[in-house]
Design a protein around this nucleic acid. Structure first.
Lengths: 390, 390
DNA sequence: TTGAAAGCGGTACCAT
DNA sequence: ATGGTACCGCTTTCAA
């Protein structure tokens, strides 16, 4: 017990250049004993003193790797437990030049925060990925950091900031700005891009198998008998966009169906865009019996546009989405869609990043299987003559 | 230029105990010059050398508060710019015992990551709050941290971890575990609870004005002529639950309508629960012409349950939600709901936290106004005789 | 195996 | 106003 008191005294004495320590001696003592964790941090030196070993030994005990005698280790652990010792993360990262922190990318560019970069349909999808990321990161003892943007939002100050924060690696969601992507690639900071291409000695990317997902979606419609399949096209510039186009075409090719370019309506990956695209399609007079959307949210918008025009889903037109949000079953009709495994995507992203960090070399791109989930928004096409848009 | 070369040499020399520095001298030099930010960090000492001042002066220049001559400041800033200097965050937090970091709470308890703690209806709402939090945090130069859970998930190690990370404050979303809430309250770590009660010398809370929001919702229904209003009740244990009950009752009381307890169905704040509650309600045979849900997602589920039973919304039954997600306008019918101002909630949370941090005392609870947004899911009740549940 | 000591990159007090 | 210097708490040689 006397050790404990001595310790408490010490805690309250240091840093006070001989000032009013006597004044607060009593109250300080009482407080410290009832809530040891409430006051100034417990340091490895405090633990060393209580355990009767050197501070270096305490450090070794917690670093794990170093060799410490069982006797010493036991004493240290006991002391650490009674004092409620937790190593100072700041001191550790200062000396180690790294920390168990993964930065989530997006706080780059102009006034863009990570979550603001994601447009709404993305948002609902990526929130699932984000949850998986956090779950897995927490499993492996890493914190997630969403850094604030630097004042000068150029790529080098972006990287400098990450370095200043001593992040172990970076995970980006969706399409990053090109300058940021380049900066990351050149930075030698371990990076995993989700849904964007990026390869390098310390970088790779993970995404759903979008080619196969889109292929399955179109195949499903073809199997139901659809031939005139419209697509709300997502920008080709982004990875999922490119791959899904390829997948859709592959499925069409399998059946020898040639794609009618008039059935491919460009959109901006927003519900509003999808709504307008659907209206455009209807107004064009080109016949179609099914619509492929690139996200569930867009699919909802397509359905809304269709029903607003008096068409029924799936009796008149089938609609298929992409993502498989929880919401799909709540909609009426329940949405047939391509399931993306957000848990796997998030988990793999973290695992891959750790691999880069630890093994110092990046593996190739990772693709997570996706699959169609059939619900109520798709059905065989009506007899062709039965469909008269507008 | 010679200064630059000297600096580069120094960067590559230190820490290498006289080993193979000659070997890599050339390549190292070239690399360092084309990508100065790529190698070992630029320190304040490097800047001092180039600027021809002491390291202390560089520190003062960047700390802002201290007095530095204009001449010195200019030289330092020039040097810092050419070298691409950014203060080391770890070193700063080590010596300052704080950092510009706000922890988002949730990584506490069992295997609960922040985002996993939120049930799905919450999730869609809180993601908006999260976005606002990040936007505002980034404005004021704070990073957001989602800490991984400590191995021993008790409240004191939770607080210790936050301290070890040197977070400036904590913001919690939704209902935290009681032990965590207490720990935070006792910790003297500045804290803002969103949607949970928590007051102390360094803690306060912010939420929508749930009482008024619920009152407006019920008022809206009453004004349409509804008298038999059912409610999918949220747990009373949580702040929004309590306040909304109070608000709903207040509105009823204003019109002298007495609440029929059979119209209040407890649910668990999930879409499945809301669906089941609606079915239960219908099966009970108790008449009603409107349903108040506690979230938009639940409202969707209610509508789905109603329509699955052959009832029309709003012709047979009116439904009103809470939150005003972007999705509301995509649904059919578009959802009448109570708008929560997520941007304000997030912004206020950050601002209030900063106030606690800087002024060292917590203000009272903050309430953000909410208001009804009328869309298509509410209408005057059908003639009473017209309604026959089932 | 263990302890002593030299930093890691800043901050802030001291004296000049 | 500026430079010198003593830490912040921890990791990692180096010697013992």
């Amino acid at each position: 017990m006397h050790q404990f008191m001595a310790l408490v005294d010490k805690v309250h004495t240091r840093r006070q250049h001989g000032a009013h320590q006597a004044m607060h001696a009593h109250s300080g003592r009482v407080q410290a004993m009832s809530h040891p964790e409430r006051n100034a941090m417990v340091t490895s030196e405090d633990v060393a003193r209580l355990a009767g070993v050197s501070q270096a030994t305490v450090s070794r005990t917690f670093s794990g790797s170093a060799r410490v005698s069982d006797a010493a280790r036991a004493k240290v652990e006991a002391a650490a437990a009674t004092l409620g010792y937790e190593p100072d993360a700041a001191a550790q990262s200062l000396v180690r030049s790294t920390s168990k922190t993964i930065a989530l990318s997006g706080a780059f560019g102009h006034d863009q925060a990570l979550l603001s970069l994601l447009t709404r349909p993305d948002l609902y999808f990526y929130i699932g990925v984000l949850r998986a990321l956090q779950t897995r990161a927490t499993d492996v003892g890493y914190d997630l950091l969403m850094p604030s943007r630097p004042e000068r939002p150029d790529s080098s100050s972006y990287v400098r900031r990450l370095r200043s924060r001593k992040v172990a690696g970076v995970i980006t969601l969706g399409a990053p700005e090109e300058a940021q992507r380049q900066a990351l690639l050149e930075s030698a900071i371990p990076t995993v891009f989700i849904d964007a291409v990026g390869s390098g000695p310390k970088a790779t990317y993970v995404s759903s198998d979008n080619v196969d997902g889109a292929r399955q979606a179109v195949r499903h419609l073809l199997e139901l008998g659809h031939r005139r399949i419209a697509r709300i096209a997502v920008p080709e510039a982004v990875l999922p966009g490119r791959d899904r186009i390829a997948g859709a075409r592959a499925a069409l090719a399998e059946r020898g169906v040639t794609e009618d370019p008039r059935l491919v309506i460009a959109s901006d990956w927003t519900p509003e865009g999808a709504y307008d695209a659907t209206v455009t399609l209807l107004n064009s007079g080109v016949q179609f019996t099914a619509v492929v959307a690139e996200s569930d949210i867009e699919a909802f918008a397509v359905i809304r546009a269709l029903t607003d025009q008096g068409l029924r889903v799936p009796e008149d037109v089938s609609v298929i989405g992409f993502d498989d949000l929880d919401l799909c079953t709540l909609m009426r009709p329940a949405l047939t869609t391509v399931h993306q495994d957000v848990d796997q995507i998030g988990a793999k992203a973290v695992e891959t990043l750790l691999q880069i960090i630890e093994q110092d070399s990046a593996p190739g791109p990772v693709e997570i299987p996706a699959h169609v989930v059939v619900r109520d928004s798709t059905a065989p096409p009506p007899s062709m003559s039965g469909l008269r848009p507008r």
